[in-house]
């Protein structure tokens, strides 16, 4: 049940996408996300779908892994769709009491849903094909220029990598505590909302304690190894672009150009 959250969970496989430079994947994901907001009609979404499907295929990660990430946003998705459906003004096609569905609302709701779903799947592709270490390395380099305006890029990257690193650990821990409390007769599933919230206490208290303990241990371990932030730190494996990365940038450029072209032409 808890393992359904895939964000930040690496799926090992031997594919082109896995081997790409994390900087390319980060920039690629950003470009893809922006492109989703560029398009306003079905041709744009078709292009985005083709691009996304191509990348997913090349990544060799089973498709249902990416769908798992969607479960977490189902509520947001529903709210967005419902709001767009009933609130957008335009040509009325269906009316009941105070509810009014318009043609524009319908298409807006559809587009918003597709946008949100693609947002999650797009970023899932990145996290599923990139190890957390690579991801933060990439992030640190991509955001590097911001250092000039005193943004603590290294620290942000480190915080991110620690957070990503700990997601699976905390999930595992949650699973363990849940099992331990279930063995003591705890029931996490039945009951009304208040009972359910109450039943979370035996889970959350140990979980928080363990998270703090881990944070404390980690801080100590880092200090023991003389960690003092990013200043003067070098990398054992600095990121270097290879041929396939340039090819990747080319594909990305073509995609972005196509999306802009569609936007301008329509």
């Amino acid at each position: 049940m808890l393992r359904d959250i895939t964000l930040g969970q690496y799926y090992p496989a031997d594919s082109v996408i896995h081997k790409l430079d994390p900087r390319l994947k980060l920039i690629g994901t950003m470009v893809f996300l922006v492109s989703l907001f560029l398009s306003h009609d079905w041709i744009g979404y078709l292009a985005a779908t083709v691009f996304l499907a191509g990348v997913i295929r090349a990544s060799r990660v089973p498709f249902r892994y990416m769908l798992k990430g969607l479960k977490a946003i189902i509520l947001i998705l529903l709210i967005t769709v419902v709001f767009n459906l009933f609130v957008v003004p335009g040509d009325v096609i269906w009316e009941f009491w105070v509810l009014r569905v318009t043609r524009q609302g319908l298409s807006q709701a559809g587009f918003m849903a597709v946008r949100l779903i693609y947002l999650i799947i797009g970023s899932s592709v990145m996290t599923l094909t990139t190890t957390p270490n690579d991801l933060t390395d990439g992030l640190e380099r991509v955001l590097g220029p911001l250092r000039m305006v005193k943004v603590p890029v290294h620290e942000i990257a480190m915080i991110m990598s620690i957070a990503l690193r700990f997601i699976p650990i905390l999930l595992e821990e949650t699973d363990k505590i849940m099992k331990a409390q279930t063995a003591r007769g705890a029931d996490f599933e039945s009951g009304n909302l208040i009972q359910k919230a109450k039943s979370m206490v035996p889970l959350l208290v140990p979980l928080f304690i363990s998270a703090f303990r881990r944070a404390n241990d980690l801080a100590l371990a880092m200090e023991a190894r003389c960690y003092r932030g990013g200043a003067g730190r070098t990398k054992m494996k600095p990121l270097l672009y290879e041929k396939r990365d340039y090819a990747g940038y080319a594909v990305l450029a073509v995609y972005l150009a196509a999306m802009i072209a569609i936007r301008i032409m329509r």
Binding site: I177, A180, Q181, A183, G185, A186, V201, P206, I209
Partner: peptide, 25 residues
């Protein structure tokens, strides 16, 4: 079933209440 490191599942405000958790369930 007593799990490994069972002390990580303690959560109540005092010892007695924590031990009562199972029987109450």
């Amino acid at each position: 079933l007593v799990f490994q490191y069972p002390e990580y599942q303690l959560f109540e405000v005092n010892v007695l209440k924590d031990v009562c958790f199972g029987p109450k369930n």
